[in-house]
Simulated scan of single mutants.
Amino acid sequence: MQTGETSRVGSWDATGEAARAPRAGVTSVDSRGEATRNTIIEVAVRLFAEQGVLAVSNRQIGAAAGRGNTSVVGYYFANKADLVRAVMRRFMERVSVGRERRIAQLGDAPDLRGWVTCLVFPYTELLDAEGPPTWHARFIAQVLTDPGLRETAVEEATSQPIQRILDGLRECLPDLPDRVLEDRSRIASHVIVQMCAERERSLADGQPVHPPTWDEAATGLVDVLVGMWTAPVTTTED
């Protein structure tokens, strides 16, 4: 080391003086990039929900995000499927946290209603906490019916808590054939997504909703799904 040159050791230099902290208001390039990426995701889910996933272009998203360069979306997401995946992942990761918390509170012998509650309430609780307005339920309802995006959406919605809930349902319904359990699980997914999307749309438009709270709406969904899973299985001859 040359005379007069200082070396850094942790956050201190060789003279024993504390290294200068970054100036207030100075943001790293990585932090700015992450902020831009998050803004794009937030704007995209709103536009997708309001106008339709296929109807919204990257240029529209960039402009709505307040970026002078309307091609900015392409710097962060390779294509629309990549952006859809990011929007889904950001929301479903938070839903998964809620499901993990609910599962941990079930106790030693959870019943069917307990498992269904773990499925429904974390989804509605997040929508309740973030709005109104919210956009994720309408967005998810769209991508789950789009042939080109459905697989991406399903991949992001499938998680360890979901698998644990399905295992719990199977334990509570030992006489229900696996095929029927899988069919009813798909029906449950559509019921949750579509009913929440309808409620979300009404709230965003300022229309009256019934029941008046997300908690009551979730309780009603749980009632319906418990009834569906315990319904008799009608067999037909080939």
Results as ranks from 00 to 15, higher is better:
G33L: 09
A104Y: 03
I40N: 01
E155D: 13
R67Y: 00
R89F: 03
A65S: 10
M195Y: 09
T235L: 11
V95L: 05
D30M: 14
E155T: 13
I140S: 07
D111R: 15
G62A: 01
V84I: 15
L106N: 05
T15Q: 15
V9Q: 10
G131L: 09
V45D: 10
G66L: 03
A86C: 10
T117R: 08
L181Q: 07
A55L: 09
D146V: 03
D82M: 05
P110H: 02
T117N: 04
R199S: 00
L112M: 08
R102Y: 00
E182D: 15
N69H: 03
P208S: 12
V53C: 04
P174L: 06
A24R: 15
E125C: 04
R20D: 00
G66E: 04
G62R: 01
A49D: 02
A55D: 15
G66C: 06
G10F: 08
S28W: 01
D108A: 13
D111E: 11
I41L: 10
V9S: 12
R32I: 06
R23G: 14
A19V: 15
S57E: 13
T39Y: 01
G4A: 08
A81T: 08
L203V: 08
A104D: 09
N38Y: 02
L127R: 01
F91N: 07
P133Q: 04
P161M: 05
Y123S: 01
Q160W: 06
G107Y: 02
I165A: 09
G62L: 01
R32H: 07
M1G: 13
R37G: 02
R113T: 13
N38S: 13
Q105T: 11
V95T: 07
W214F: 06
T27R: 15
A153D: 09
A217W: 06
S189A: 14
G206A: 09
Q2K: 15
E182L: 14
E5I: 07
V72C: 04
E182T: 13
E151R: 06
Q207H: 10
A44V: 08
E34S: 12
Q51M: 03
H190T: 12
L176T: 12
R113M: 10
G52N: 06
Q51G: 03
E198M: 15
L126H: 05
E5N: 05
D30Y: 14
L126C: 07
A157T: 14
S71G: 14
A64Y: 04
V9G: 06
R23W: 07
Y75N: 11
